[in-house]
């Protein structure tokens, strides 16, 4: 097993004629927290979604702990893995979404339990105990029997994070998790993520919160037209941007 947790090599992704990722290389070690920043359309979210194959990719390799996600090479040809295999691989990573995507017909705790019972084949009471533990961690234990429609956006997002983390993923993906939230609800969600980062959770985040990217990450990647424009430790990136594009971007994001 390689020491790299996530390895992306020469990743290309097209939507029809439009090439949105034009050769991305990225490696992450255990415990890394990497933020992807950049203007909309630069490919941040698509890159994130290729990691758990919510988007197929046409060229290159995405590998988690040395295992290529979604495809294998057989006699020089690239073959998509069977659906069951891909489902197993997807559970290696956890994902939190911009619009939470909680299951509206299930209570908070049943949302968290679903993956444990279906994917991890746990007994109900074992899954219940784990779900309770993680709901407690995100401060939602008291509302475990509430349905998503009865929760605020910030609370829903915290449950959604618990749902992903409870699966014990090797890597957490956060896709603009605060973009759909009212401003006063942003901090409660960021606090949860910061907390997880402190505990050594490996994370890849897409965010528009520059201050947060600065505080939480040990590396920031500035995406630009489907390529990595600039990358480095946040202190350096934000203080001394090397490229004109990044300094303009930082100015427009009021950092």
């Amino acid at each position: 097993m390689s020491s790299e947790l996530l390895q992306i090599k020469n990743l290309h992704k097209r939507f029809g004629d439009l090439e949105v990722l034009k050769g991305i290389d990225l490696t992450m070690k255990h415990g890394d927290v990497v933020s992807l920043i950049g203007s909309s359309g630069s490919g941040k979210t698509t890159l994130l979604r290729c990691v758990n194959l919510l988007e197929d990719y046409e060229e290159g390799v995405v590998a988690v702990e040395g295992e290529q996600i979604g495809y294998k090479n057989k006699a020089g040809r690239r073959i998509r893995l069977p659906e069951k295999e891909i489902a197993r691989q997807r559970a290696m990573t956890g994902m939190a979404f911009q619009h939470f995507n909680l299951f509206p017909h299930m209570s908070a705790i049943r949302n968290v339990m679903l993956g444990l019972v279906k994917t991890k084949k746990m007994a109900k009471d074992e899954a219940y105990a784990i779900a309770e533990k993680w709901l407690g961690r995100v401060g939602m234990l008291e509302r475990k029997d509430h349905f998503p429609g009865q929760l605020s956006g910030g609370q829903q997002q915290r449950v959604a994070i618990a749902r992903a983390i409870a699966m014990n993923p090797k890597l957490m993906l956060f896709d603009e998790v605060t973009s759909a939230l009212d401003p006063e609800l942003v901090n409660e969600v960021l606090a949860v993520i910061l907390d997880l980062a402190k505990e050594g959770m490996t994370m890849l985040l897409v965010t528009h919160e520059m201050q947060f990217a600065h505080d939480v990450s040990n590396r920031v990647i500035f995406m630009q037209d489907g390529r990595i424009g600039e990358e480095g430790p946040p202190q350096e990136m934000f203080k001394n941007p090397k490229t004109e594009r990044l300094s303009e971007f930082l100015k427009s994001s009021k950092f």
Binding site: M95, N101, A164, M167
Partner: peptide, 17 residues
Amino acid sequence: PKGQTEAAMSIGLTFSE
């Protein structure tokens, strides 16, 4: 919404699950 399927897939559910 498509997000429902994506959320289910992201926790490792197969299509029939």
